[in-house]
Design a protein around this nucleic acid. Structure first.
Lengths: 215, 215
DNA sequence: TAGATTGTTAATCGATTAACAATC
DNA sequence: TAGATTGTTAATCGATTAACAATC
């Protein structure tokens, strides 16, 4: 194992901040900023400078005393830590409105995420194309994943199908699942459950109870 | 102020769990379950029973010793706490794929969220309808919010417009903002920033580094 | 009453923040 | 060298978990 792979158990809070660092560093690079101190980066992100240094030091010493962090090299370290320095094949299961939106998601463009196909059980959709990607029958999902080495499965199907779709994809060797159905998918791969309704409810809570604790 | 309104400062972690309780209680009610103990509820949600009791006791004593919690009445308490016992008017700013998907979002159906209009600056879209809702010019956004008492603004516009759209909506008296643009919107109202790319990056992190710390 | 389970206080654990020696 | 800023240890803060008296 390479030296830079030796990371201890990293807390969920740190993992959630990594993509934010990545995003902020992209902005800094776009602005042509060459170096940044933990203090400046923290101020931009409304974090604490100690926290920024602690976070990066979970993975290695990327800074230099008296100088700070080189934006370009820190960016490339964070990319590597997030495993964004490779390509991913995605399938979207459920070709409804949400599946449609994700098939056109610009956020995929930059970071090597390639939607290779959508799946649905609606005969009217099967055989069509969405954003140039074929819509296939859910019956062929497992075989397609195996045959094409698909990495990530995105679930936008209804709640009642979500877990069995996940099981089928895991069985077929998928590495990660990004679930938008309103149920907590479980399984022995990396899973991110996104509950849009939950976020909306948190919003109404804050609208009602005041906004001090915002994010 | 009513007695039940007296809540101290509630941590973000608790607020994030409230919608999950709500969702789980809806399932229990659907299954016809009449009462539930903190232990059973915790087991279903993979939480700790103490935590469940602590969480509810931020807002009041909803249980009964030796009995547990009545599902129906707890559900109605959580609904009230989340401020879901009223109706909300929403506008969606940005009638692209994501705006389109949200205009059709089923999660809105149950909980009194009503999308009343979409806004875009694309002349080709203005005047059209999406899911029966008019697409209007962004130039009329502020006036529309004022005239119709819109509660929540959903931003699915591009990054470069997002903050100024938020500012305009806040100026017009909006109460909450649900932002999907890849930037952290700031303002003196309740705001939820959803960064789908960030979640996807957290997924690839876990795919690469193993899944022990999953959610 | 006896059993169950809450509400609540205390203990533990982990994450954030502060401090500072190391060093560029 | 002097100044700046890291990496890292220690202190603090807050959230989670355990324990148990109260009570239905």
């Amino acid at each position: 194992m390479e030296d830079y792979m030796k990371v201890g158990k990293v807390s969920d809070a740190v993992i959630r901040r990594l993509p934010r660092y990545y995003r902020e560093l992209l902005v800094l690079r776009t602005q042509g900023v060459e170096r940044v101190s933990s203090e400046k980066l923290a101020a931009r992100m409304r974090l604490n400078a100690s926290q920024v240094r602690q976070d990066f030091n979970c993975f290695g010493g990327f800074g230099q005393q008296g100088y700070g962090y080189n934006v370009t090299s820190l960016l490339s370290e964070v990319r590597r830590i997030l495993a964004l320095n490779r390509e991913y094949k995605l399938v979207i299961v459920g070709a409804g409105n949400m599946g449609h939106a994700l098939a056109n998601f610009e956020g995929f463009a930059n970071d090597g995420f390639h939607v290779v196909a959508l799946f649905d059980n609606n005969e009217a959709l099967i055989g069509k194309e969405i954003n140039g990607k074929p819509v296939l029958s859910v019956a062929t999902l497992g075989d397609y994943i195996r045959a094409n080495g698909v990495d990530i499965g995105v679930i936008t199907a209804r709640r009642s199908f979500a877990q069995e779709l996940a099981d089928a994809m895991i069985e077929a060797g998928i590495k990660g699942i990004w679930n938008f159905a309103p149920i907590d998918i479980e399984g022995e791969v990396a899973i991110e459950n996104v509950h849009l309704s939950d976020i909306l409810c948190a919003l109404t809570y804050r609208m009602e109870h005041g906004n001090e604790a915002e994010e």
